[in-house]
């Protein structure tokens, strides 16, 4: 096996971690709803990769850690029925617009609150696909690879997610 493509090579492993850990963590968070747990699972999945590095070549490593992590997430979610927790974890980017009226800002705040709530209530698959697309700016093709389904399925889920959000938020 070529040393530079082996996940047993520390440098290769580190680089692989740096380029994939964050997205994996976000994916697990959107899917299972708990950020701390998502970060633990990322650790465990990569430790497992390291232990099995001689068997998992670099080009298989990505789907390996996603599969391991998803399975860990499912078995942990079974134990504790977690709801998607957005309160401490999803932050509102400061837009830097300061010339808005206080009423407008209060209204915006209320709207954002409602939006976050609506995202939390989305079915897991819709939320996962929708946030990977909007927050992590992943293409439908990339999301399809991560979640092991067709691009067509992703498009349907995106449409559904938006329609569901629209319904939950109502006319505010």
């Amino acid at each position: 096996m070529d040393e530079k493509d082996s996940t047993c090579n520390e440098k290769v492993f580190d680089h692989f971690f740096r380029s994939h850990a964050k997205l994996l963590r976000n994916y697990l968070y959107y899917k299972f709803g708990n950020l701390d747990q998502a970060e633990d699972i990322v650790q465990d999945a990569f430790i497992k990769l390291w232990k099995n590095c001689s068997k998992v070549h670099l080009d298989k490593a990505k789907s390996y850690v996603y599969t391991v992590a998803t399975n860990l997430g499912i078995s942990r979610a079974r134990h504790e029925k977690v709801k998607f927790n957005y309160k401490d974890y999803i932050l509102h980017r400061n837009t830097g617009i300061t010339n808005e009226s206080p009423e407008f800002i209060a209204l915006e705040k209320e709207y954002m609150q409602k939006l976050k709530q609506a995202i939390a209530e989305l079915p897991e698959r819709q939320r996962e696909v929708f946030l990977l697309s909007r927050i992590d700016k992943k293409t439908y093709k990339e999301i399809a690879e991560i979640s092991n389904v067709s691009v067509k399925a992703i498009e349907k889920l995106m449409h559904k997610a938006l329609a569901t959000l629209r319904k939950t938020i109502g006319n505010i």
Partner: peptide
Amino acid sequence: HYKKIITGVDALHPKQYDIEKELADLKSKR
């Protein structure tokens, strides 16, 4: 309404992820 949802979602981001710290933790656990 849809436009507003997208604008709102695009302003959201999850809590910071300190990749170097996570990697260091991983190594010490490993």
